[in-house]
Write a protein that binds this DNA or RNA. Structure first.
Lengths: 229, 229
DNA sequence: GTCTATATCTCGATAGAC
DNA sequence: GTCTATCGAGATATAGAC
């Protein structure tokens, strides 16, 4: 269903079969998954209420169990969807042609746009991690096997290459990875607090998001540039 | 205990009264608050279990209700503690003497250290925000009145001043604020995922945290430096 | 102040009609 | 496939002994 970029023919076949399976998600199932993502990202796996998910989806509780057996299984389906969108759908930008600043800028723009369009995604993953990442840990082997090159590894490769070629100074690529992702994500996580503390910000949200892309790019690109002094 | 730097006599009195009130927390109450912070930050307000909080604190459930009436009131006490630690205890670094790079470096070092020593703090606040910030919104007026100058506003002032004096280029200080805080926080939020995807990282955690401080400082300081080209 | 025992209620899950 | 009604586990909260 979710096995992307398989590494062998056997896995590839499973992958195809599963793609078929996943595209057969009915309208109702998709409604439930979307509602569940909202609810889980707001209240966590334990805090989420099946009744609220049903309400959001405009259905009744019994149907949730009809389609997804249990709350835990529903959570797992949502997790799988979120994880792939977040870590692998984003990877495409990083496979694009172009020099270091071009690829870096494209990635940041796409990442901020994705976060803006799917504000529930990062919070869903952060909660999973805060809860000790039980589903993530259990699913990891199959995820990594099926996706040897996700966004994080491609980003690391980008920084390593730019260091080697002299386009950026020598730094730990992992530190840079964290700085960029943090700078992108934290706007959406922190804005509700800051816009309450500093009310002038509230009306400028869309503008701030738009300006944010180049702000991050410039901070990182020039912050990584080799220095002469 | 938490109302720092009041700006008028009236507020100052409220401040003192609150210091008195808050410092009368007994050992048992502090144990409960610490256990509750852990539990709430792992499982959220609804997902947290009173039984688990009691277990963590080495007490029984009934005592939690004896000291803090209800789960909701316990949550509010934890919130107040966390918010003040997070936003106002940190502010001291920013009132220190020194030029732009000195103050900036000191803040980043202290912030990363604080996060490292209190890993539950940011997740607790992120969850509150994700749940729609109900407690935060209700408590905001008293918080802002008692703390006109918290860490966020002092950081903004630092960036504005360095822009004006020419020590950094003209940028939106709010964007820089978000980038720095995000870069600091996201290490602790994201590390569990990345160390699973890239197992080599696991053994280098402490070293990475230590190196992280100067990495962020250099990225931001040089990323903000006026450019000649 | 601290504990055990219990009341009360919420929520996940199921049975069974349609 | 969809719904109503309900069971039963597990949660918050309280009563009352010590």
């Amino acid at each position: 269903m979710y096995y992307v970029y398989p590494h062998s023919l056997t896995i590839w076949l499973i992958y195809l079969v599963n793609i078929m399976a996943s595209t057969t998600f009915s309208e109702t199932e998709l409604q439930i998954l979307a509602a569940a993502l909202e609810e889980f990202s707001m209240h966590g796996r334990q805090g989420a209420r099946m009744q609220c998910i049903a309400d959001r989806a405009g259905l009744n509780k019994a149907l949730l169990h009809y389609y997804f057996r249990s709350k835990d299984r529903l959570y797992e389906e949502v997790f799988t969807y979120v994880f792939h969108t977040y870590f692998f759908q984003l990877a495409d930008t990083l496979r694009a042609e172009g020099d270091f600043p071009t690829v870096l800028r494209a990635f940041i723009h796409r990442y901020v746009d994705m976060l803006n369009e799917n504000p529930a995604l990062p919070m869903f993953l952060l909660r999973e991690v805060a809860e000790g990442a039980p589903v993530f840990s259990r699913r990891l082997p199959e995820i990594v096997q099926a996706n040897p090159l996700g966004m994080p590894k491609l980003l690391l490769a980008l920084f390593e290459e730019s260091s080697r070629s002299g386009e950026s100074r020598k730094t730990d690529p992992f530190q840079t990875l964290i700085s960029i992702m943090g700078a992108c994500i934290y706007f959406f996580a922190g804005f509700p607090i800051f816009s309450t503390l500093i009310p002038e910000l509230r009306d400028r949200r869309d503008q701030l998001i738009e300006e944010r892309k180049d702000h991050i790019f410039e901070l990182v690109y020039y912050g990584l540039k080799p220095r002469t002094e």
